[in-house]
Write a protein that binds this DNA or RNA. Structure first.
Lengths: 215, 215
DNA sequence: TTGCTATCCTGACAGTGACAAGATGACAGG
DNA sequence: CCTGTCATCTTGTCACTGTCAGGATAGCAA
């Protein structure tokens, strides 16, 4: 394991059908494509194998079963999830509240760009949440939110219930927005253009911070 | 259709295997039980038929296919969903903000009591959202939220963007809380006893109303 | 009694995930 | 160069799924 050659698989690496070269990474890519096109409820392990141009039983040698594959995919999802938020934050004012808003907009960005993957990460029972690698990745995403709030409240939410309540509120807001948007249930927001929508969402996110030096 | 004898099916109504008497309602009950025990991702139409003590092809005569059954079940879910919220509101102070909070707590109550059904209603692609009966039921649930906000803002959110923003915020908050709670991702809230948890959630819900006569 | 029809069953089909067993090729030791 | 070893991948099979076709049953009206 851990032989993920960082996406450099594919053309040039294999000559025959056997010993693909980097089938594990290819399967993860194929699984993501399968997830994006079929949705999580019509996801098929055999479809993934077909996408990777490999027999239906090949994935079992790299991931034990479908749960193993989806657990690995969810792990990658959480890493990219945090990346999307941080990328948003880098192009935002270096001010705690603006940073929190940017993180929240990144949260929604990720969900809208990868709705099925988002559902796999947050709403599905298929990934093994007790898998240590996945648990670490999702915990890292949560820790990031905690730190964003801490930067505003100047108190560690882990020790201050009021600050932790802010964390819960901020999380619930952005998660609710994301989940309802990808469900197509927020016509009011979806009918707006992106800048307006983000302005409204920023407003909604920031009204939730009860503590800290409110401007 | 429409021959739902309001749950009075079962013992006493049938004598042979044929002409169950109220198989449609029995199948809906069985489907809900199947959903609650297996979860939405392991839901099986044949399992529903087995629960109802009927052949695997019997459901097709009352609901065309699995989507038909799940659409009907989601419709019932939305009706009970609104009922749960209104029940909460009846035992709450007759004051707009308290009523909104009660509605939100009912929202979360329903999700925690029927997690798989909640997911079917909000996160699943299986029900046919274009089905007019289901669309009406889910629209009624949304209208209820709109009216709860209208009672606070004294403005119709349909004509006032600021009030509609309050609707989006309130919805996102309670939906995010509900979804994250049934996903088991809010350890902070789940570790609390029910009164404390509801106090925190009430606080979170009510800090979102920007408009109206704030006390 | 004779149809008629809604209701329910049996049987079959392709598709699914998981498992067993065989085929292939890379690679190390002689 | 040859041989054995082993991870990798394939083929074949199983039980299970949803859907469809066709047959069986019973209520009911004429």
């Amino acid at each position: 394991m851990d032989n993920i050659k960082t996406g450099a698989h594919g053309a040039g690496a294999r000559k025959t059908n056997y010993h693909h070269g980097d089938l594990r990474a290819a399967l993860l890519d194929a699984a993501e494509a399968e997830l994006a096109s079929k949705g999580i409820e019509a996801f098929s392990l055999r479809g993934v194998a077909k996408r990777a141009g490999v027999s239906h039983a090949a994935p079992a040698h790299h991931f034990n079963d479908a749960q193993g594959l989806l657990t690995a995919l969810a792990t990658i999802g959480f890493q990219r999830f945090v990346d999307t938020q941080e990328k948003r934050q880098r192009s935002a004012p270096r001010e705690p509240r603006a940073q929190l808003a940017a993180s929240g907009l990144g949260y929604v960005d990720f969900a809208m760009a990868n709705p099925a993957l988002f559902r796999l990460m947050f709403s599905s029972q298929k990934p093994d949440k007790k898998d240590p690698v996945l648990a670490d990745a999702s915990a890292a995403a949560f820790d990031k939110l905690v730190k964003d709030i801490q930067a505003i409240a100047h108190i560690d939410p882990h020790t201050d219930p009021v600050a932790m309540t802010d964390v819960m509120a901020a999380w619930a807001i952005v998660h609710g927005l994301a989940d309802l948007l990808i469900a197509g249930r927020m016509a009011f927001l979806q009918s707006m253009n992106k800048p307006d929508r983000e302005a409204v969402m920023t407003d909604i996110i920031l009204r939730n911070c009860s503590s800290g030096p409110v401007g």
